[in-house]
Computed example of a mutant assay.
Amino acid sequence: MKHTADRMIALLSLVVLSPVLLAIAVTVLLSSPGPALFAHERIGLNGRPFRMWKFRSMRTGADEELATFLREHGRENEPLFKIPEDPRITSVGRVLRRWSLDELPQLWNVVLGHMSLVGPRPQVLAEVLLCDEQERRRLTVKPGLTGLWQVSGRSQVPWKEAVRMDLRYVERWSLLLDIRILARTLKAVISGRGAV
């Protein structure tokens, strides 16, 4: 039921939001050199990699600069670390991130079955490799476009607390919990609390 509902809602959302998606894509293209969309490899259900789509919110080549910035902040081994006032983010990208509009293309990942609307956020391989066996239990469900820790502070939530919330979701999943998280997601996006 969850997987069917996810795909149907995501497909309907893509159709309804298509004018908005097109407007965002054009704005990104006009604002800075590079493509409108950015594909990033993430780790999904049972450790399988997949390409996750986002609207590009950083300058082209930002991925190659990440290791340098993490070293400068002494955070090479800290999962989910966000660089304060990240200089790689474009002016349009800051607006997209503030309202989580950069995440909208992930509705296509939901349609393809790589992701769910609600679940633990998908990590990159380097972050997964830093997890212990208990923490990797997050990979026993599909990653989500939103999740429990996204509606509880987003980037302000410490890594260990984010993992604890994800594991709580895995253990206590219910359709009602998904509905509650989706409702709280709307509130979190509107408030912009914790957005980076």
Results as ranks from 00 to 15, higher is better:
residue 21 L to T: 04
residue 59 R to Y: 14
residue 99 W to P: 00
residue 82 K to N: 12
residue 133 E to I: 12
residue 69 F to T: 03
residue 144 G to L: 08
residue 86 D to V: 02
residue 69 F to M: 15
residue 41 E to R: 12
residue 24 I to A: 11
residue 74 G to Q: 13
residue 73 H to E: 15
residue 128 V to S: 10
residue 15 V to T: 14
residue 30 L to D: 11
residue 36 A to I: 09
residue 15 V to W: 03
residue 91 S to G: 12
residue 122 P to N: 08
residue 52 M to T: 05
residue 98 R to I: 08
residue 75 R to E: 15
residue 17 L to W: 02
residue 17 L to K: 04
residue 15 V to K: 02
residue 117 L to T: 02
residue 75 R to Y: 07
residue 114 H to T: 01
residue 55 F to K: 01
residue 96 L to T: 03
residue 71 R to Q: 15
residue 123 Q to R: 05
residue 77 N to T: 10
residue 64 E to N: 14
residue 126 A to C: 08
residue 82 K to M: 11
residue 117 L to K: 05
residue 13 S to Q: 09
residue 114 H to R: 00
residue 149 W to D: 05
residue 63 D to S: 14
residue 88 R to F: 08
residue 18 S to I: 06
residue 56 R to K: 14
residue 109 N to Y: 04
residue 32 S to Q: 11
residue 4 T to F: 10
residue 127 E to G: 05
residue 122 P to Q: 08
residue 112 L to P: 00
residue 24 I to E: 11
residue 82 K to E: 14
residue 21 L to S: 04
residue 148 L to N: 03
residue 144 G to E: 11
residue 137 R to P: 03
residue 45 L to T: 01
residue 24 I to Q: 06
residue 125 L to D: 14
residue 137 R to C: 06
residue 120 P to Q: 04
residue 105 P to N: 10
residue 75 R to G: 02
residue 142 K to G: 03
residue 82 K to A: 14
residue 75 R to P: 02
residue 137 R to T: 07
residue 52 M to R: 00
residue 43 I to L: 07
residue 131 C to Q: 13
residue 138 R to K: 13
residue 100 S to W: 06
